[in-house]
């Protein structure tokens, strides 16, 4: 049987990837690579990534890539876009970077309707540092800093819903999950198209696996993601 071909945007030397087995980043990144190839935008795209696990993608693509930290990816990305409005700027980060330390940059980019696309992987925790509580941690969830599920908030942080409140007409905001890559692909495509059309800020949160910090096997990971989907409803929140 012929195995499915990886898109040309993905750098061969970056295989095998640095991500842990079962990590959701690989699925999202493959989708992004496919999208850049399908939309034929790889020569005009700059991929801006954050610190945390996403930084392992700093040389993942044969596409211009800029790796920074602490959610400042959003500010760096919009600086690029303002400097060169013809470029397509994709910012990629985790829930810790985007919703905790970098929230100020994220919400103001949305509030100013900056014409960039932000893709955010939500796995309910800070993973690179070993699985600490994030704003997205579910009530009662056990993490490195919420032993036995104590210290968690009564409700997690709803990023896309919060952004949608401050978003302008023309902004695109959605939530997808790695368990449904087709939907994630089409939402990300809509988001990038939104930028190409010059309509302003676009944002897709993608619920993602972290078996190593969730301490789950394949079945457990799938179950945890289903639980996340019940908490964080999928769909297009603003378009």
């Amino acid at each position: 049987m012929k195995s499915p071909r990886f898109p040309d945007t993905i750098k061969e030397s970056s295989k095998p990837s640095n991500f842990c087995p079962g990590c959701g980043h690989s699925i999202i990144l493959k989708n992004i690579g496919q999208l850049m190839a399908d939309m034929k935008i790889e020569k005009k795209t700059v991929f801006a990534i954050d610190i945390g696990c996403s930084l392992l993608a700093w040389d993942f693509f044969d596409v211009d890539t800029f790796q920074t930290h602490h959610g400042r990816t959003t500010a760096t990305a919009l600086g690029m876009k303002r400097a060169n409005p013809d470029a397509i700027i994709l910012a990629y980060m985790g829930d810790g970077g985007g919703y905790a330390i970098g929230l100020q940059n994220l919400i103001h980019a949305c509030y100013r309707n900056e014409n960039i696309t932000v893709i955010l992987a939500n796995n309910t925790m800070f993973s690179m540092t070993g699985g600490q509580m994030a704003p997205t941690t579910l009530p009662g969830e056990v993490t490195n800093t919420t032993p036995d599920g104590v210290f968690t908030a009564d409700k997690p942080f709803y990023g896309p819903e919060m952004l949608a409140r401050e978003a302008h007409e023309g902004a695109y905001i959605a939530r997808a999950a790695v368990s449904n890559p087709g939907q994630a692909y089409s939402y990300m495509k809509n988001a990038i198209q939104n930028q190409i059309d010059g309509k302003g800020f676009s944002f897709v949160e993608i619920l993602s696996y972290c078996p190593i910090n969730w301490k789950t096997d394949a079945e457990g990971s799938a179950k945890f993601l289903e639980k996340m989907k019940k908490t964080f409803p999928l769909g297009e929140i603003k378009k």
Binding site: T68, G79, A83
Partner: peptide, 23 residues
């Protein structure tokens, strides 16, 4: 190009983003 940002780190990172694109 002019941008009043939400804080100093944002101002600095926007600047570096602009520099990386040749401005």
């Amino acid at each position: 190009i002019f941008l009043q940002t939400e804080d100093e780190p944002a101002a600095g990172f926007v600047m570096v983003g602009g520099v990386s694109m040749g401005k």
